[in-house]
Simulated assay, not measured.
Amino acid sequence: MKVSVKDNTEIVSPVVLRKYTYTKKILQNYQLYLFILPTIIYFIIFHYLPMYGVLIAFKDFVATKGIISSPWVGFKHFERFFDSYQFWRLIKNTLGLSVLQLIVGFPLPILLALMLNQIRSEKYKRFVQTVVYAPHFISVVVLAGMIYVFFSNNGLVNNIIMIFGGEPISFMAKPEWFKPLYVASGVWQETGWAAIIYLAALAGVNPELHEAAVVDGANKWQRILHVDIPAIMPTAVIVLILSVGNIMNVGFEKAYLLQTPLNQPSAEVIPTYVYKMGLQQAQYSFSAAVGLFNAVINLILLIAVNKFAKKISGQGLW
């Protein structure tokens, strides 16, 4: 929209000016937009369009009728899940496993990154990094197989226990051992890889800060406490928010592979329950309702923790 005035000049309205400026910026940086276009397409196809299928959680889905023609049942499947004898057990197992994994697994990458950052020998530092990063590239199936081999009745761990005069332990049969094995194996596999983001944050610390601290008489521990830790704190807050927001999504593959008929009371979590109900028993609507409930809880936790973290530290996702 253009407005004419007496001296025959034209004044462009602010709305048109903003649109022109925005379009000009896009054209000037079109390479960057083309670069992220595949990622946008991926998220649209595999994350946003499938959300249409959430409707089956509120229907009695019949494959021959399709999603639209299947009859509406409202919250029937949610009520069935809430009234199920497995509801509280699933919540307890899922939250218990996730919270334990968060408590143990969240601070360790920070500690590892701080220790690696203090190593002055580049050869030794690269060697340690290679050793701690390597487990990340082991597939979950192989990791589960290793756990079975090491912790079976005739495995390496029980052989060591018997050498020292102890009694063998049925690690894979006792429900109380499932969480320690799950969490410990996750720490071993992912701690080194998770430390990379903190090492990147530490690499951005201005060396002049350390030099000034040394001049002021600060020792190594004081420099870590007052220079390094504040530098990685924003990154740690973001990682913590994302971890809490994903707390109900326990790794399905490892939980399913480590399940046995004897440890199932402690090993059954919501993702494995959804898999069994949906794919093994073909209860698609019910499993979709359970999965939607799980996603809603994650969303609520993500928003709540982000708000709390932003209020306390000033850092947040948005």
Rank of each mutant, 00 (worst) to 15 (best):
L17E: 15
L97G: 03
V141T: 14
I103T: 08
W88Q: 03
S313Y: 08
K254H: 15
N306P: 06
R80C: 02
E190S: 07
A184E: 05
S13R: 02
Y275G: 03
I45E: 04
N298A: 02
V187M: 09
E79G: 12
K174P: 01
K59M: 08
V149Q: 14
S152W: 01
I163K: 14
T9L: 02
P261N: 03
I224R: 00
A213F: 10
E253N: 15
Q31H: 11
M146D: 05
Y133E: 04
L262I: 00
P135A: 10
Q315W: 12
A200Y: 14
S266E: 09
Y20R: 15
V157G: 04
T64Y: 12
N93Y: 03
T23K: 07
Y273C: 06
S185Y: 05
Q86N: 14
V296K: 04
L258D: 09
L242F: 03
M162G: 00
Q86V: 08
E176W: 04
F308A: 11
T94F: 11
M51A: 14
I160L: 13
V237C: 09
G186L: 02
N306F: 03
G245S: 00
T94E: 10
V99M: 03
I241G: 13
F171E: 07
A304K: 04
P271A: 10
E167G: 03
G155N: 06
A63V: 12
Y48T: 11
N249E: 13
V16P: 01
I160C: 01
M248W: 08
T94A: 11
F58V: 14
P175A: 10
S152N: 06
F46G: 05
V205L: 05
L114N: 07
Y20E: 15
W221S: 10
Y273I: 07
F35M: 13
Q189M: 08
G291W: 00
T130H: 00
L199H: 06
E10V: 12
L32H: 10
Y20W: 14
G155V: 08
K307I: 14
A236K: 09
G192K: 07
L240K: 00
K254W: 11
D83M: 03
